[in-house]
Design a protein around this nucleic acid. Structure first.
Lengths: 99, 99
DNA sequence: ACTGATGTTCGAGAATTTACGAACTATGGA
DNA sequence: TCCATAGTTCGTAAATTCTCGAACATCAGT
């Protein structure tokens, strides 16, 4: 069973989180994950190669923006909404705002 | 008289703004500008070469985070608080929060 | 006009990030 | 066990970004 690194809530770093969110592809991923609650990698990777998507998932995961859990053969990704809200109140609302 | 490019409020781009804020040096610059209201470039550039600071000022300026006005021999930098708040409500509060 | 102070621009090198194919791992089902 | 599916990791090439020195421009004061 594969294991991923997830920073714990208290060590979330603002520049790192902002950088993770500053890529248009990742921003869109985050919005769709937020809207769906939980999404497999495949559900987001229609347009790009899997290895590219995997890179973006990793960036989001290691910044603490999403949490990835293994469910059988698929990986389910969810926003770390509570952790983000606790550490950077209001950030998620800004990012999820459809402008 | 030198003229700078400042994007107008309506064309502020979230990924671009987030990227501008995702650098620790620039994040600190923004916080100090916000605290002071308006600051010269020199007031922020004690530690790094002027050309490096100028690059960061430009990045912030062209993302629409700060506005630079020329006042005699110095450049005064201020946060574009109203524009940012209008376009991305709550973002500034998150960024200026001293965690 | 000369000088000092303030910043920008230019150019180049180093570091980081992005993108993507290929090989690999793990899981569930036939 | 064999096979297809899901996704990661590796290696590499291209694009961005960061950093900084050097040269340049502008302004204030003398």
């Amino acid at each position: 069973m594969r294991r991923f690194f997830h920073p714990d809530a208290s060590s979330l770093d603002l520049p790192r989180v902002l950088h993770a969110l500053s890529d248009p592809v990742r921003l869109e991923m985050v919005r769709r994950i937020a809207a769906a609650g939980e999404l497999t990698c495949g559900a987001l990777g229609e347009a790009r190669p899997k290895s590219s998507m995997s890179h973006h998932f990793r960036t989001l995961r290691e910044a603490g923006v999403i949490r990835t859990r293994v469910a059988g053969a698929v990986h389910l990704n969810a926003l770390r909404g509570d952790d983000l809200e606790a550490r950077f109140p209001g950030l998620l609302a800004v990012v999820l705002e459809k402008s």
